[in-house]
Structures are given as C-alpha cells and as structure tokens.
Write a protein that binds this DNA or RNA. Structure first.
Lengths: 209, 209
DNA sequence: TTGGCACTGTGACTAATGTCACTGTTAAGT
DNA sequence: ACTTAACAGTGACATTAGTCACAGTGCCAA
C-alpha cells in the first residue's frame, strides 16, 4: 500500500502531498535500537509497517516495556522531546522489521499551524500515550504479577497480531522487570488453568485467557 | 502579585492581555475535588497559588499520587483531554487552598496558533508531565517501598515548601497505594536512622534524608 | 551422533509487603 | 475532667516475589 492510500483517511490531501515530499523513509531491522535513552530526538517517526517497542531502563539496566507503536501511529514522547530538542527518556527498539517515516522538527512544527488534521493527529497521539503510561502505572501499583503477565501476553499478541508468542521466559521476565523463575512458575500456572500452551521458546494463548 | 507580573517572563505582552481578558479566576478550598475521573474536561487550569494534586484511582478505590501542579504550571493531561473533549483519566484535588485560571478550549486552541510562547508553554507542560509519569513508573517498577517513601516525602516537602509534613500515616499509605502498618514501620526505621522526626500527624524531615 | 548450550521446571530459602489483632497515646469536644 | 475516636506502634502470620541451586530437555553445530 502506498503512503497516500495508507493515510488518506487521517490527513487532508495537501498534507498527504507534503508528507510525500518532506518525510524520509527509514527501515530498521528486528532488534535495532532506533533511539536510546539520552539521545537527542531530532525527528518524529510515523510507523508504516512493523512495530516499535518503547521501554524504560533503570540505572541497573533493568528494562520495563511501556507500550508499542504500531502502523500509522507515532510516539508522543518523541514528539514533545523533539519540539524542544531534549534527550529521550525512553528507548525505542524495532520489535520486528520496521518501516517508518521520519519527519523533521521544523516541518512538523509548521504543519501544526497549517493542517488541522495534523494537529488532531498529534493531540490524539499524545493522549493515547498518556493513557498507555497510566495503564502501566495501574498495572504496577494495583495489580499482582500474574495479572500483569496476562496483560503483557495480551498486549504482545495484539502487537504481533498472533496468538503465538515467540519469546523465552527470560525475555518476558526482562521486559516486565521481573525474574525468569517467577515468570516460569506463573506461566505454568496459566497452563494448568488451560489459559496457555507452553512450548520451547513459544507460548500459545488460548481463548480462556 | 498580579497576573501580568506573575507571567511576564513566560508570555508575551499580547498574550498577557488576552489572559487578563479571557481567563476566569477560580478558587478551590483544600480538599476540594477540582476534577474527578470520568468527568469531561472543559477548561484548562493554570495555577496561580497553592497546589493541585493529580492522582490515579483504581476500581477498588485505591489511590496513587502521580504529581503536583504548582504555581505557574498546568496539567498536560487536562490539556490533551480537553482539546478533544475526552473524559479525564485522573483526579485533581486541591492539596491546599488553590487559586487558578481557567481557560476555555477554543481560546487555548487559538493561542496555539497565535503565540509562540503559549505553544512553548504547552509543550513544556506536556513534556514535564510525561517525565513525572515516567518517574512514577520508575519508582513502582524498580524501587522498594522505603525508597518510594523517601521520594514521596521529598516531593511532598517540595510541594508544600516546608520540611514539616502534616499527614497521618494512613493518608500517606493511601496516596502510595500501600498500607498504614507498613508505612508506620518504614517511618520508624527512618526515625531510627535519624532521617525524620515523628510526631502525631506530623513528620519533620531532617537534612540526612 | 553427540557435546554443549540455551531453555525450562522446580524445591528450598529469603526478603518484602500486606493483613490481623491488639495496645497505648493524643487530641478534641461536651 | 471525661469520653471517645483517630492515630501510632508492634508482634505474629500470610502472601507474593526474588534468589539460589540444580536437574532435565530439546536443539543445533561440529
């Protein structure tokens, strides 16, 4: 699908034209770090295909998955940091192979004035990301690990569009800032409860989940 | 201090004039709920004096303090919800007596186009609030309760501008989504470590904290 | 085909947090 | 001054999560 088709329901024709002209196409391979914590944000990404993982890393290197940026979406934090040339507080990794548009700050800023559809897109993005962060906070503050794990599996499944998750228990533990053994045990419990099936390096989510 | 003086370093003269004309002055008494979860956001607040507490409430009524909005600041979530007339995801309470300006959506939107200083203010606010939420997430994901408590006390002290905190252990436990006994014990430990002094309904933070 | 390695499963233990029960203390109001 | 209710302290215990140790399993590469 070409760029114009993909965004014609979101942006007005004029903006689509400018998007064609001024946005750079970028490709990233699975696992590539698109933006690391501390790096200055210089462009705003809009995902065309694939998924970008946004996560937080603490001083000891422990990771916590925050949310995914999927097709036709952007990342609000990139956006606000970018507008003022601040360093990023989060890490962006290519969850799979990703194609995205890269929009320079000045252009983006200009469009805010010129195109209502752009302003609306930006506002929607910011609101959506606030809500993602609030969801993370809810999980951490009010939910136990087993519920967080279920939520994690569902989000992962949504992001990849498949009920089959290809991850080791250790990778899951890392993204949830927990430990391998605990995740193993909780997954086993989920399997006993007929909510998942466990294979080597693979988890099948069942309808009961 | 009058409005113009208070904001003259942030906003351009034209905007100051409009602010005088179009913003409504609102007063809230300590403890007043300024905006509850689920209520539609219709105005954007800018605090003149006092402090607004922004918190998240789960389905069981458990609270978690997110951050404070102090003088000359605003709340980004109010802002983004407001722009699209969405219900609020957070609760805003007057931490003490608060005076704030209330700006209608349409005006605020118009200013985004017209005044660079306004746009910059809004962007700064959004970025600041993202960072507050990330700090909360860090605390919850990576820190133990004792460190979270220290952080909480310091934030409270900063918000009130005093090293004397007038709160019961139960109130603290509520705002941290923990339990009274645990907070009591941790506070006692802090007292033994000469980091605080405990009185009835009052905690004195020492330099060692 | 087999040796090694990443992955998984699990028991035993520790640490952190939450819950229950009960006590003593303080402050505020009548 | 006395009553009462909110506040604070603490022991005992339960639950949750993290850590350590080790065993078994499957898969890939030499």
């Amino acid at each position: 699908m070409n760029l114009t088709d993909q965004f014609k329901h979101i942006f007005e024709p004029e903006l689509l034209k400018e998007l064609q002209e001024k946005a750079t196409h970028v490709l990233a391979k699975e696992g590539d770090i698109i933006l690391n914590i501390g790096q200055t944000v210089r462009v705003m990404p809009i995902v065309l295909s694939g998924t970008i993982k946004i996560s937080r890393i603490d001083q000891n290197g422990h990771e916590l998955l925050l949310y995914y940026v999927s097709s036709k979406e952007s990342c609000a934090m990139t956006f606000t940091c970018c507008m003022e040339q601040f360093p990023s507080e989060v890490k962006a990794t290519a969850e799979d192979d990703v194609a995205f548009l890269s929009i320079p700050i000045s252009t983006m800023d200009e469009w805010m004035m010129k195109y209502p559809s752009w302003k609306s897109f930006v506002m929607k993005t910011i609101r959506a990301r606030f809500n993602e962060l609030l969801k993370s906070i809810d999980q951490l503050a009010f939910q136990k690990l087993d519920e967080r794990l279920i939520h994690y599996l569902n989000e992962k499944s949504k992001a990849t569009g498949s009920s089959l998750i290809n991850l080791s228990h250790e990778q899951i533990a890392n993204e949830m800032a927990s430990s391998r053994e605990v995740i193993s045990r909780l997954l086993k419990k989920l399997e006993n409860d007929k909510k998942v099936l466990l294979y080597r390096h693979q988890i099948k989510l069942l309808k009961a989940l």
